[in-house]
Simulated assay, not measured.
Amino acid sequence: MMERPLDLDAVRAFVHIADLDSFTRAAEALQTTQAAVSLKLKRLEERLGCRLVERTPRYVQLSPQGAAFLEPARELLAGHERALAVFATTRQRLTIGLSDHVAGPDLPALISRMNAQDPQLLIEIRIASSGDLLQSFDRRELDTVIVRLHAGRSDGEVIAEERFGWFAAPDWQKRSDEPLPLATMAEPCGVRAMAGRLLDEAGLPWRESFVGGGVAAVTAAVMAGLGVAALAPRMLPFGAVEVGARLGLPELPRLPVLLHSRVRQERPRQALAALAAAFRGAVRG
């Protein structure tokens, strides 16, 4: 029988390391330093008498003991949150706006990270264009928004920069006698405006071949062979190919992702830090 109880902060650090595959991103999620996270893990390993995480210069991997401990660690943290919830009179609500060009297929994993950070936090998420979300944020209808850089604004915290490219279906071929067919999101969309501006500056004729209400619709049009779209690689289904170099299209810049927030309470801030760290991992991955 173990005499000393486990340090919950150390257990939480271990779970973050396992979920995010990184000491750096675990530190970001916990709003502390990498050295502090490493120290917490070291003390937990000493307490358990085994190594939980195998570290190399290139990757982080759970040891067999770490893999076996992960689910019990999650249950321990969840039980702690349930115990605290007995004394909570109301659940805190956090309303978040995510740009459609930001959320993408990683949204379930991002929500899971936030829930793991604080299961008792009531999270409300809205998906829309960056411009619409910023207007809602300015009207104080949203606590936080994560959006692409928007023309005319210099506020917000840059949490990541993401590569964009020109993508098409693998068997798609452009006809030499027609303008470039472009699949885009409906206005207002900063990525759409950027793509059109760069094509115009390069003197390349183009036309809209498809206008979708979200990234999922645009990627479906791309895979259906309707044309080319400016998208982040992680948004594309397997099989889409980058065609910018082959078609002589202008290089797309890396686009920043910004966090705008007025949240001051500690628990929602911790959940947002976990979300930002998970998103950095999704973009870099």
Rank of each mutant, 00 (worst) to 15 (best):
D143G: 08
D143W: 02
T144M: 03
T144L: 07
T144N: 07
T144R: 04
V145K: 14
I146Y: 07
V147T: 10
R153A: 02
D155G: 03
D155E: 08
D155S: 08
E157V: 14
E157P: 12
V158N: 04
V158E: 11
V158W: 06
I159D: 01
A160E: 03
A160D: 06
E161L: 12
E162K: 02
F164Y: 11
F164L: 08
G165S: 04
W166R: 06
W166S: 07
F167N: 03
F167C: 01
A168S: 02
A169Q: 06
P170K: 02
D171T: 01
D171N: 03
D171C: 13
Q173T: 02
K174A: 09
R175M: 09
R175Q: 08
S176K: 04
D177T: 12
D177Q: 13
D177F: 06
E178L: 12
L180C: 00
P181G: 04
P181S: 04
P181K: 03
P181I: 02
L182I: 13
L182Y: 09
L182P: 05
A186S: 15
C189G: 13
C189S: 15
V191F: 14
R192H: 14
R192M: 13
A193I: 08
A193F: 10
M194E: 01
A195Y: 12
R197S: 03
R197G: 00
L198D: 03
L198H: 07
L199C: 00
L199N: 04
D200R: 11
D200C: 10
E201K: 12
E201R: 12
A202F: 10
W206R: 04
W206Q: 08
S209I: 15
F210Q: 15
F210L: 15
V211Y: 09
V211W: 14
